[in-house]
Amino acid sequence: MNNTANLIRLAVVLIVVLLLQVVVFDNLDFLGLCNPFIYVLFILVAPFGCPTWLLMLMAAGEGLIIDIASNTPGMHMAATILIAYLRPAVLRLVAFRSATYKEGDIPGSRGYGSLWFARYTLIIVAIHHLALFLIEQFDSFYLWSTLIRIVLSIVASTLLIILIERFAPATRGADD
């Protein structure tokens, strides 16, 4: 897939996940216990070989928009930059021994399997949420209640992201 198509696709994904996050998921609050952050999907589906500095800049911008919408200055920005930085390492970690990532390809359940995508999503989401909750609650950290919230939020975000990735064509690129 060429670069222009990839760029347009990424822009569409970004706008969709931002709107979904701010309009729908920021207003959902399951028993005050977990908030799903599905906007992480944008970082997940950037093409393989996307330069890490570029991914981090996009992550910073995305995080900042979420921060502005939810009155959490810098918090989502910090967590999202972190997963952008760690993404290449996570991709190496979840790689099959035989399969290789093709540069420009999109990390997705279609090309690499649902199980692969689930593992990849879970690790990235877990890093993101841990960082986010630690930054948010460092001054009022209550071990058990915070841990429960972190775990429930990781589960909710991971499941929702897998669902959205499954059914949103833009995240997968053109059908081949």
Binding site: M56, G74, A78
Partner: peptide
Amino acid sequence: TTIIFIILEALALALVFTGNDYHRAAYLS
């Protein structure tokens, strides 16, 4: 890459620690 990462994170954390001054940051909210 790591240097850019550190700069960006420093920016974000600076926001975390100063951004709670809502009085000045209405446009950032």
